[in-house]
């Protein structure tokens, strides 16, 4: 445990040297804040861009606060996922390429603590920046649209966050058998797209799929009641994360010894 804390601290120090602690939260804030602003100023934007005949009147319905929150979560689930994959695609692969992993692993450090320390540090970064970004967007939604109860806001935050953690764990998993960060990023994004497409087109059979969690979050925000299948999706996501971590540890061990 003590050794694990040392590795964990090493990750945190590396992240602050890379300025990840500053720029990742800022990117999440900007992603989140962009959406309520453009939705709020849409009539003025259309006006200013012009191209409409004289006297044309456009009536845009003012979106409700939960619709804005859904749009914000949509940003997190597309560009946010891209940022997560980009920041964590080299987390093990780059260290193996440069030989740092070999230097650490000659010492009596277990493979499990090496991988889980990295995973925990990346998770901490993800949740902190996701939380800061979502709170910033909440500020704008309250100012520009209407107040959203904090409980709803927090529940949607947790629900969607489980899917984001699943994505992160998947990136770590692909890290364990590829040495090139670019390949890791590409495979992860391809798998995520495939999962989302599959489970949204076969949503009747795959109700427990973790990639449906964003959809469930949206229904929760719109109707204010938790859909039935959420629990199974959460359980499958958590089991999936554990399985992915265990697999990545064992694959990593085999690859490193070979």
């Amino acid at each position: 445990m003590n050794l694990w804390m040392v590795l964990f601290n090493k990750e945190l120090v590396e992240m602050s040297r890379n300025f990840k602690w500053i720029w990742v939260p800022i990117v999440f804030i900007l992603l989140a804040v962009k959406e309520p602003l453009t939705l709020y100023y849409m009539p003025q934007i259309i006006d200013a861009l012009g191209g409409l005949p004289e006297g044309a009147v456009i009536e845009l319905p003012v979106p409700s606060a939960s619709e804005v929150l859904i749009a914000i979560l949509g940003q997190f689930n597309t560009l946010g996922v891209l940022i997560i994959v980009l920041t964590s695609m080299g987390i093990i692969a780059a260290e193996r390429k440069s030989g740092v992993a070999a230097i650490i692993l000659v010492k009596p450090v277990s493979y499990a603590s090496f991988v889980t320390a990295k995973w925990a540090a990346a998770m901490l970064l993800l949740w902190v920046s996701y939380f800061i970004g979502y709170v910033a967007s909440w500020y704008y939604v309250v100012i520009l649209f209407e107040a959203v109860p904090f409980i709803d806001f927090f529940q949607s935050f947790l629900l969607n966050g489980i899917w984001l953690s699943f994505v992160l764990t998947m990136t770590i998993f692909f890290n364990s058998f590829n040495k090139s960060p670019g390949v890791v990023g590409f495979i992860t994004i391809a798998i995520i797209i495939l999962l989302s497409v599959l489970s949204s087109s076969f949503s009747h059979w795959l109700q427990w799929s973790p990639s449906l969690l964003p959809t469930y979050t949206n229904t929760f925000l719109l109707s204010n009641e938790i859909p039935d299948n959420v629990l199974s999706a959460i359980i499958v996501a958590i089991i999936g994360m554990i399985v992915l971590l265990v697999c990545s540890i064992s694959i990593f061990r085999r690859k490193e010894l070979a």
Binding site: I22, W23, I26, I29, L30, V33, L37, A136, Y139, I143
Partner: peptide
């Protein structure tokens, strides 16, 4: 509305 965004951008 605008000050937090400018601030964040400047920090970055």
């Amino acid at each position: 509305i605008i000050v937090p965004i400018i601030l964040i951008q400047l920090i970055l």
